[in-house]
Simulated scan of single mutants.
Amino acid sequence: MALVANINEFNKLQQSLGLNYSQLAAKIGVSRTQLWRVLKQQCVPGEQFIAGFKAAFPNQDLEKFFLLKMVQQSDTTSSA
């Protein structure tokens, strides 16, 4: 399983606060590039990202913004 960001919830939060990506990233304490990668699911949100989010938005439910995603093991895994 992997943790992924719920893009819809991040977009709703961003719009409700009137923040652009740079401002949202600064509030969380990560770079704009890191925020973009997490939202585009090019990387998983790490410990610093999640801790920064919780510190910036203590009243938000983490389970609404971060979802567990099932990852299937590749069928092309070779055996020795």
Rank of each mutant, 00 (worst) to 15 (best):
A2K: 15
L3S: 07
L3A: 09
L3F: 07
V4L: 14
A5N: 12
A5V: 11
A5L: 13
N6L: 09
I7S: 07
E9A: 15
E9R: 15
N11H: 12
N11D: 14
K12P: 03
Q14A: 05
L17G: 00
N20Q: 07
Y21C: 02
S22E: 10
S22G: 13
S22I: 01
S22T: 11
A25G: 05
A25K: 01
A25M: 04
A26D: 14
A26N: 10
K27H: 09
I28V: 05
V30L: 00
S31C: 02
S31N: 07
L35C: 03
W36S: 15
V38H: 08
L39W: 05
K40T: 08
Q41Y: 11
C43F: 01
V44T: 05
V44R: 04
E47P: 00
E47S: 12
E47K: 10
F49D: 12
K54S: 11
K54P: 00
A55Q: 14
A56T: 09
F57K: 09
D61P: 00
D61G: 03
L62H: 01
E63P: 00
K64Y: 04
F65Y: 15
L67D: 03
L67H: 11
L68V: 11
L68N: 11
K69Q: 15
K69R: 15
K69N: 09
M70P: 10
M70Y: 13
Q73V: 10
Q73C: 00
S74D: 14
T77M: 12
S78E: 13
S78H: 08
S79Y: 08
S79C: 05
S79A: 07
A80D: 13
A80I: 06
